[in-house]
Write a protein that binds this DNA or RNA. Structure first.
Ligand SMILES: [Mn+2]
Ligand SMILES: [Mn+2]
Ligand SMILES: [Zn+2]
Ligand SMILES: [Zn+2]
Lengths: 141, 141
DNA sequence: TATCACTTTGTAATTATTACTAATATGTAT
DNA sequence: ATACATATTAGTAATAATTACAAAGTGATA
């Protein structure tokens, strides 16, 4: 597996301490963290880190393709490590988690649609996750 | 075709003047307007309307299913009339427009995936729209 | 070492949204 | 038609997310 440092080098981004820690956290966190999530986690180990750095770095990483931006709530931006295979997401109405869904979407390979050039594909569902369905008080069926 | 008033009545939402105008604008506007777009348009004809009313009404309409929320930028919420047939969206990197794409997605009919209950499906693409591609200065291929 | 470009940080400003409350309008019962 | 209860609207304040900006820090290079 490629280290975070190698990912950054390969993208031509100088692997500073802050960038490495931010990228590693996004890679290891399975919960599609927000900027605030990242900041609150990293400030524990790097007391001087600023939220602006998290914003700047996230933007740099998204532009380079090292991470993907996940837009599912409309009011906050979340992030996902781009090393994962392409997948869609489920936003759970009950627990709020954003869960990966592996789907075999026939559009993932399309580079053009109706004359439009396609650069990124995003799919997400709103619903109730299997964990929350399992809890009897939430079963509707 | 069903009038806006009929849509609201069918949903059990009292068809006030403001709600009718907001719903009609969202129905007739093909550009997936933001709250601010709606407010700036309607204030011309209804000088007393407040942005809070637009927020409240949009929330009511989304919850009732009369309109859909479109989350593609991460920082602002947009809306789409739910009377349209299901479709995906393209966000153009050049002109910023959000354009409907009719696709035959095999997941639109799925009510369950990997044990999760599916309530809504959303798909969008980032890319360059056919209009912007047509302009020679933007052709990359 | 001196320089220069890049990076980080802290602060201020902006934008989108939500919270709260008073005023207004509407439906119902009398 | 009037009074009352309730829903809706509007205005303002508060919160949250993001962006803008400039000073300070860092590190590679001449
Ligand atoms: Mn994911
Ligand atoms: Mn649409
Ligand atoms: Zn859940
Ligand atoms: Zn375009």
């Amino acid at each position: 597996m490629q280290s975070a440092k190698e990912v950054l080098k390969a993208k031509g981004i100088r692997p500073t301490f802050q960038r490495l820690k931010i990228l590693e956290f996004i890679r290891d966190c399975k919960e599609h963290p927000t900027v605030d999530d990242i900041y609150r986690k990293l400030i524990k180990g790097i007391p001087t880190i600023s939220k602006t750095t998290v914003y700047n770095t996230a933007k740099t990483l998204v532009e380079s393709g090292a991470i993907n931006q996940v837009n599912v709530t409309g009011t906050e931006t979340r992030f996902d490590f781009a090393g994962e295979p392409p997948h869609h997401h489920l936003v759970c109405d009950k627990c709020g988690r954003i869960i990966d869904i592996a789907i075999d979407c026939p559009y993932l390979s399309r580079r053009e649609m109706e004359g439009h050039l396609i650069i990124e594909k995003h799919g997400y569902f709103r619903g109730i996750c299997s964990d929350c369905r399992g809890k009897t008080e939430n079963r509707a069926d």
